[in-house]
């Protein structure tokens, strides 16, 4: 990427960062910030590599302030680097705010790790996940459904209906700040989530139920409900694939 193109991209990015508001933080925005940061960092490192800068302090970024930029061997492009560094510092500050925010929301470590590595929002279902779900469904079929595949199919249908109902009701209850009702609908759905071993969704629901009882923070609840809504289609797809494979195996 040419310095001019990068500068143009950075200008857009800076504008978006300025518009970014943590008051409106939801899962999409948090993900956007993180992706933007990683993209920016990669570009910065690339241009630094082109300029053959070898000072290790430069890549640490946070300690690298604009007034020190002339220290670095960036030749005639130093003024561009100066802009990069300013924005890089801003991005890191924003990123740290994001980190602090996540900590303040008491996000479980496993979930936080998922947010950072972006797997929570990855819209794919891995073979390993499907295989694991097939085993879970097989156990449910054998132990609870006494081998009746139609019953398992009915349970999956009810599961999907309940999840969609929860997403709709949660939105309504957050709008109305009715946390008792939100806790109730969360309580209602959690047995089914546990029964089908959909642990990510179950973990989110437990947190929603807990927050409804304790601090009743609408931003936190909105964030958790957004996480549920983002994760549900992936879980649904995994269950569908697992059930289809299981059904085919049982039909043979």
């Amino acid at each position: 990427m040419k310095p001019k193109d990068l500068l143009s991209q950075l200008t857009d990015f800076e504008k978006k960062l300025t518009e970014f508001s943590f008051n409106k933080l939801n899962a999409d925005e948090a993900e956007f910030l993180k992706c933007s940061f990683l993209s920016f960092k990669a570009n910065l490192l690339e241009i630094m590599s082109l300029e053959k800068s070898s000072d290790p302090q430069f890549v640490r970024g946070k300690k690298c302030r604009s007034q020190n930029s002339e220290k670095y061997a960036l030749g005639e492009n130093w003024f561009i680097a100066d802009s990069y560094i300013k924005i890089y510092d801003e991005v890191i500050d924003h990123h740290e705010s994001y980190d602090t925010l996540l900590k303040s929301l008491n996000i479980e470590p496993a979930m936080k790790s998922q947010l950072y590595t972006s797997t929570l929002f990855e819209n794919t279902t891995s073979t390993a996940t499907v295989e694991k779900q097939i085993l879970n469904l097989q156990l449910l079929l054998d132990d609870e459904c006494t081998g009746e595949i139609e019953l398992l199919e009915e349970l999956l249908f009810i599961y999907e209906r309940n999840a969609l109902e929860f997403i709709g009701m949660a939105k309504l209850h957050i709008q109305n700040e009715n946390y008792a009702e939100l806790a109730f609908v969360a309580h209602k759905i959690k047995t089914g989530l546990a029964m089908l071993d959909t642990n990510d969704l179950h973990s989110i629901i437990l947190q929603i139920e807990q927050v409804c009882i304790t601090d009743k923070d609408p931003k936190h609840l909105q964030f958790l409900c957004d996480c549920f809504a983002q994760e549900y289609p992936i879980v649904k797809e995994t269950l569908k694939l697992a059930f289809d494979k299981l059904k085919n195996t049982n039909d043979l």
Binding site: E144, Y159, I189
Partner: peptide
């Protein structure tokens, strides 16, 4: 039981 999922399962097993 207001949890439809659990109710469907228990209903089936109890009838059986």
């Amino acid at each position: 039981e207001d949890d439809d999922l659990l109710a469907a399962l228990l209903n089936f097993r109890l009838k059986k």
